[in-house]
């Protein structure tokens, strides 16, 4: 690639549009990843609490 780093970053004058597109993708995908992993972690914690409360009152938790 004969393009210099400065040329690459400048994107022929379209840098604000090109880089904010890719930047937005990064932000949204990181949020997606955090959201998915957070949902899994929260679901596991909820299930653990359900098992613990079921064990403590021995009644089998409903709803």
């Amino acid at each position: 690639m004969e393009r210099s780093v400065a040329d690459f970053l400048a994107m022929g004058g379209y840098a604000p549009y090109v880089w904010s597109s890719y930047g937005a993708w990064c932000v949204v995908m990181l949020a997606n990843l955090a959201g998915a992993l957070g949902a899994l972690k929260a679901a596991k914690a909820r299930a653990r609490r359900r098992f613990e409360s079921a064990a403590s009152d021995d009644g089998g938790e409903r709803s």
Binding site: L40, A47, F51, A54
Partner: peptide, 28 residues
């Protein structure tokens, strides 16, 4: 990939206190 992670969370929520969940969520 994202669907797999979210689906696992949904399944745990829907399975409530099914016994197969016990080791997965680390319940005694």
């Amino acid at each position: 990939a994202l669907l797999c992670v979210r689906l696992r969370a949904e399944i745990i929520d829907r399975e409530r206190t099914a016994s197969w969940l016990r080791p997965i969520v680390g319940a005694a």
